[in-house]
């Protein structure tokens, strides 16, 4: 197992290298100019040129890449063109909201979607099944930002139960922190709940027809025990795969959700950096997201061995 993990970790390096090259090249090849943006309306050509020179944007692309990647290898992601802060520091400040939102969303997704899927499978063909599947179709048909606005209108503007926007750091009070994450997490989780509930239903339905389920029932085990210990446990591998994918796809949703709810996380940082052509920040954030994606996949693969003893690496 140790050897397998090491091999997988090493195999991420070429992936990250390709991502680094691609992001760097795409930014340099798009028609944009951070120097002109920074300089403002009245800047002369000389002033813009001066800024370009100070930012190192006049150097050949290869030289710019070598300087940047050299820094990255030493843990230096450069300085944000706009915030005049080290990018690593900026990312550090933005991690908490994104991690908080992601964790609460995953928690909501797993706690709601898996039981929903199991209930639908158990009640296959009944109105309960049709209701869950109907919700499922609706859930992944509506865009995240539409769900967000509907929830805000109901729970924040009309009922005044929850805040409309903003974030409170954990150190400033867990209550406020949690309260401000409820709506964003609900918004982000709807599509994943719909998706995972559907996948769980399919996986559980498959195993419900297996002989060992009939045997368990014949032995007089309660239906709950049959569903959880025998059906769900044996359907867990495909469900876990989907949850793993969900966590990775969550990154895209985080960008939209953080923008709608003004959560100062990595998603909002990415949007701001892209709009302002803040190259060092965009490069670092994309690299971080890629690394997170690869890492999550690795964790899912490792988790298989715990859920299915037959799987060995």
């Amino acid at each position: 197992m140790g050897g397998y993990i090491l091999r997988r970790v090493l195999s991420t390096l070429p992936v990250l290298a390709i991502v680094a090259v691609l992001v760097f090249l795409m930014l340099r090849l798009t028609p944009s100019d951070p120097a002109a943006i920074i300089a403002g309306d009245y800047a002369s050509s000389e002033q813009i040129e001066g800024i370009r020179e100070r930012l190192g944007l006049n150097e050949p692309i290869l030289k710019q890449f070598i300087i940047w990647i050299g820094g990255v290898l030493q843990g230096d992601f450069g300085e944000s063109f706009f915030y005049k802060k080290q990018v690593a520091e900026l990312i550090g400040e933005r991690l908490e909201p994104t991690l908080s939102l992601s964790l609460i969303t995953i928690l909501l997704v797993v706690l709601i979607a898996v039981p929903l899927g199991v209930i639908a499978a158990h009640n296959h063909g009944t109105w309960i099944d049709r209701f869950v599947m109907g919700f499922s179709v609706l859930g992944f048909s509506i865009p995240v930002f539409v769900v967000g606005y509907i929830l805000i209108y109901i729970f924040a503007v009309t009922l005044d139960w929850l805040p409309v926007q903003g974030y409170q750091r954990i150190r400033d009070g867990v209550g406020g922190w949690l309260l401000r994450l409820v709506l964003p997490a609900m918004t982000l989780s709807v599509v994943f709940i719909a998706f995972i509930a559907r996948m769980t239903r399919t996986s559980v339905l498959e195993v419900l027809n297996e002989d060992y389920i009939r045997t368990a029932r014949a032995k007089g085990q309660t239906e709950i025990k049959v569903l959880v210990r025998h059906a769900l446990a044996n359907a867990a591998v495909p469900i876990l795969t989907i949850i793993g994918l969900t966590v990775a796809i969550l990154i895209g949703g985080v960008v939209v959700t953080e923008s709608v709810y003004t959560l100062p996380g990595l998603g909002l940082l990415t949007v701001d950096a892209v709009l302002a052509r803040d190259y060092p920040t965009i490069q670092a954030v994309i690299l971080l997201f890629s690394f997170a994606y690869v890492l999550i996949n690795l964790l899912v693969d490792v988790a298989y061995t715990f859920l299915d003893p037959r799987i060995r690496y």
Binding site: D160, W161, L162, I170, R171, D172, G173, V174, G175, G176, L178, L179, V182
Partner: peptide, 18 residues
């Protein structure tokens, strides 16, 4: 909202500060 806040606060009494 006050109720929700109170519930959230109560759940996190040892860590809560404003």
């Amino acid at each position: 909202r006050r109720t929700l806040t109170a519930v959230a606060v109560a759940a996190a009494v040892p860590f809560f500060m404003t």
